[in-house]
């Protein structure tokens, strides 16, 4: 067995960005792993999106056409197993995404693959090696896959820069797989989340404000700033207590516990109860006038500054 196989993803006819990130990740180890770098796309739309996957460094694009219009875990699982059988890769990379989590572990179990998820770094030393977080990323765990001819890794999205999409110069090959009557779930519909109900625990980027905003009238400008920044607005307890913001927005012991990728705190001094709700954010940036504010003890980046002045400048910078 040899070579690296990337499992790309599409949703509703569009290639998902993580696919091209996986190509970048695969390129880093492809040479050491030996063999070819192939990218496979499974789905009804496989042939349409396939050519984009022929990025630099990709030897071949594989398409597996599924009878279902949308992702179906059992069909994808079967398709992946067909790909393993036909391509015999030594390393398979998939995205650590909702879809992949729906079928990759089952394949790993059934085929006794080397397996790890949410991988943040991949290397090759006489076989693949992977790094992944442990205990909420407070530690890094290094893994090897002894005795495994094939290893399946799901890679955390957003860590590798996406490869430039191909323009059709890489050969595309259709891989046959019998996928009829494999589905075991029935798709009913897609529902878009309603804008009104905010779940700050699910937000990737929170702009959080605290007592430092001083007045209820200052809140709308931070709402606008958050919107421009692509962030969700959250608050600390005093603003909820004051009745300025609904409690659904509250971060902290008596509010929500959040773990966004970025937590940008304005005017939050960081009471223990508040810190308990956000200290596990991947990146914490705090702006506060008080250099002794406890929030700086958990922040990764801090600025002792007037939050309104910084907000002014941010508005400028974001245009």
């Amino acid at each position: 067995m040899s070579g690296v196989l990337v499992i790309a993803e599409s949703r509703r006819g569009e290639l998902r960005e993580v696919s091209l990130e996986l190509v970048t990740a695969a390129r880093e180890v492809a040479e050491a792993a030996g063999g070819q770098l192939k990218v496979a796309i499974i789905g009804a739309d496989a042939e349409q999106v396939g050519p984009q996957l022929g990025a630099e460094g990709v030897d071949e694009v594989l398409t597996v056409t599924a009878p279902q219009q949308h992702f179906e875990a059992h069909v994808w699982q079967k398709a992946l197993e067909a790909l393993i059988d036909s391509e015999q890769p030594s390393l398979i990379l998939a995205g650590h995404t909702i879809d992949s989590l729906g079928f990759a572990p089952a394949t790993a179990a059934r085929r006794a693959l080397g397996f790890a998820t949410d991988v943040t770094a991949i290397s090759w030393a006489d076989g693949p090696r992977a790094v992944r977080g442990a205990y909420g990323d407070k530690l890094h765990s290094e893994l090897e896959f002894p005795g495994k001819e094939c290893t399946l890794l799901t890679v955390r999205p957003g860590l590798f820069s996406p490869a430039t999409p191909g323009e059709g110069s890489v050969p595309v090959r259709a891989v046959e797989a019998n996928l009829e009557n494999v589905a075991r779930t029935e798709h009913i519909e897609f529902v878009e989340a309603t804008a009104g109900d905010v779940d700050i625990t699910k937000a990737e980027f929170l702009l959080s404000i605290g007592r430092g905003v001083e007045d209820k009238d200052n809140i709308p400008r931070f709402e606008q700033l958050a919107e421009r920044f692509g962030a969700t607005l959250s608050v600390s307890r005093p603003l909820v207590d004051a009745g300025w913001m609904p409690s659904a927005r509250q971060v902290g012991q008596s509010g929500k516990t959040v773990k966004p990728r970025v937590y940008l705190a304005f005017g939050i001094s960081g009471a223990v109860q508040h810190l308990a709700g956000m200290r596990n954010a991947d990146t914490i940036i705090a702006v506060n006038t008080d250099p002794e504010a406890p929030i700086f003890s958990v922040a990764h980046y801090g600025a002792v500054a007037d939050l309104f002045e910084v907000a002014d400048e941010l508005e400028q910078a974001l245009g």
Partner: peptide, 18 residues
């Protein structure tokens, strides 16, 4: 404040990319 704001934008973009 302008420098701080610029760095914040940079950090956020770096962390949120992908």
């Amino acid at each position: 404040p302008a420098a701080v704001a610029a760095r914040i934008v940079e950090i956020v973009q770096e962390r949120m990319s992908g």
